[in-house]
């Protein structure tokens, strides 16, 4: 573990999480301890069922945990209300999903601007900002297109622009290249690395070694425990 526990963007201590399936309790996370420093590009790897998606959901405040401590940006995330979780997500986190999760009836520009809508930013301001981030991912000319008029790579770049717009501390990417071919995958990873160089912490969940190897550090999960962490 790194010494800078308080300087860490993410600090997990003995995080446990179990799902109740009928009468049986399935423990998915069996005590996760890890720290992610500011500016790191970290991969979480593991076979299916290892608990990597659950861990990402816990990190993203999309799911709660049963025991342990989660400190995000120096704030304790234990026992948050839905409303508080929504606020922290909006303030600290950006999401990139395998299936892009763009809203189908909104243009690329509107999709990118959506997080600012929930922060109460005025329309003109957030559209200007969204346009800037679309330019950053090289899609300024596609601003008015609907998601189904974009290629897979383009959709993921829109999703990345959307994750960036609220200036998050951490971007959580769940299999960001899972639905893309290898050329497009490389483009998306290049974009994520470029963003990482600007100082934004990125956590990528993946099962592909070529993706994980591009990261600073790999956290390997097996049966709900961290098997190893190498840089």
């Amino acid at each position: 573990m790194s010494a800078g526990y308080l300087a860490a963007v993410i600090a997990l201590k003995s995080i446990r999480k179990a799902y109740q399936t009928g009468s049986q309790s399935l423990t998915v996370l069996k005590g996760i301890d890890c720290t992610i420093e500011k500016g790191e590009l970290v991969a979480i790897m593991g076979s299916s069922g290892s608990g990597k998606s659950t861990l990402l959901n816990v990190l993203g405040l999309l799911d709660d945990f049963d025991a342990g401590t989660y400190v995000l940006n120096g704030q304790n995330m234990d026992g948050l209300s839905e409303k508080a979780a929504a606020r922290y997500r909006s303030e600290f986190l950006g999401f990139v999903f395998q299936s892009f999760n763009l809203i189908s009836y909104k243009s690329a520009l509107e999709n990118v601007a959506l997080p600012l809508y929930y922060q109460g930013v005025p329309r003109k301001e957030r559209q200007a900002s969204a346009m800037a981030f679309l330019s950053k991912v090289g899609l300024a000319d596609w601003a008015e297109h609907l998601p189904n008029q974009l290629s897979g790579g383009q959709k993921q770049r829109v999703a990345i622009a959307r994750a960036l717009i609220a200036n998050p501390s951490v971007i959580l990417a769940d299999e960001p290249t899972g639905a893309l071919d290898s050329v497009t995958s490389d483009e998306v990873m290049a974009l994520l690395k470029e963003i990482n160089k600007e100082g934004i912490t990125i956590v990528v969940v993946t099962h592909e070694n070529e993706i994980a190897n591009q990261c600073d550090r790999i956290i390997r999960l097996k049966d709900g425990r961290i098997e190893g962490s190498n840089g």
């Binding site: 929504a86 606020r87 997500r89 999760n101 809203i103 189908s104 929930y118």
Partner: peptide, 16 residues
């Protein structure tokens, strides 16, 4: 459901 989930992930509170 999916769309509302995305909105929640992007910062929409239950009240919103």
């Amino acid at each position: 459901t999916n769309e509302l989930g995305i909105r929640r992930a992007l910062g929409a509170t239950p009240g919103v």
